[in-house]
Amino acid sequence: MIVAACLVLIVLFSVAFHLVSPWWWTPIASNWGYIDTTLVITFWITGAVFTAVVLFMAWCVFRYRHKPGRVAHYEPESKRLEIWLTALTALGVAAMLAPGLVVWNRFITVPDDATEIEVVAQQWFWSYRLPGADGQLGSSDVTWISADNPLGLNPHDRFGADDVVIDGGDLHLPIGKPVKVLLRSVDVLHDFYVPEFRAKMDMVPGMVTYFWFTPTRTGEFEVLCAELCGTGHGYMRGYVLIDEEAEYEAWLGEQLTFAGLPAGKEVQVANTAEPIGGSDP
């Protein structure tokens, strides 16, 4: 009796907690509303299953609890019931998987007009690089890294000269323009995580990973690291600011290019040389 009541209470508590509690995801600031939709579909299906199964269990515990003289029903199996349940479950699973795969396809298909920008992670802060006037990022490699060249840009690559290097500041992005975020790490695994954008991806030393999104809301958004990267992991924070176009241009104008850094001086000398391939994305 108490047991059955408790099972019912657990269902009631869970459903009420889901519906009433103030804890829910942060307001979205990117185009990945599809992900939220898929998540909500999953919540509905799994919630219905949880409620139905636990309530049925509670009823069984109540109705068939031991009393003197009760004898259990003898039934080894029921093929029909099992086939029905399998089919229903498969249907529910398909209803979650299908939208999931469709959205994943979008997630990994970067639109052609996306601007490439680069995020570089190291223990325990973020740096950024934006393509300059030529719209292309120069090549880079960890072997180039020095105190003067913190992101390891190739000083002999002419595409790199006009790259905007933001070492230690915040990243600004214009609203409404798709961005392909290239992710690079110089030491250990990190993960560029802005909860409001929904999208995220690990950064792996030795390779360049990516994700894309379109900012849809202006404001300041906190960046966190979502892959354990050592003692400072919890304090590896930064900010992304989504600006209106004009503000963004104004901000961009104030930033230093690689050619302006001590290590970038060489580039002008080597400007006419062929670009040298590094670990270019």
């Binding site: 995801w25 990945w32 599809y34 992900i35 898929t38 998540l39 999953t42 299906i45 799994t46 699973v93 979650m96 998987l97 999931g100 795969l101 959205v103 994943w104 997630f107 909860p195 929904r198 999208a199 995220k200």
Partner: peptide
């Protein structure tokens, strides 16, 4: 089922 479904796993 949330975490196995690749795109739902991305934010979570």
């Amino acid at each position: 089922l949330f975490l196995g479904n690749v795109v739902v796993d991305v934010p979570l």
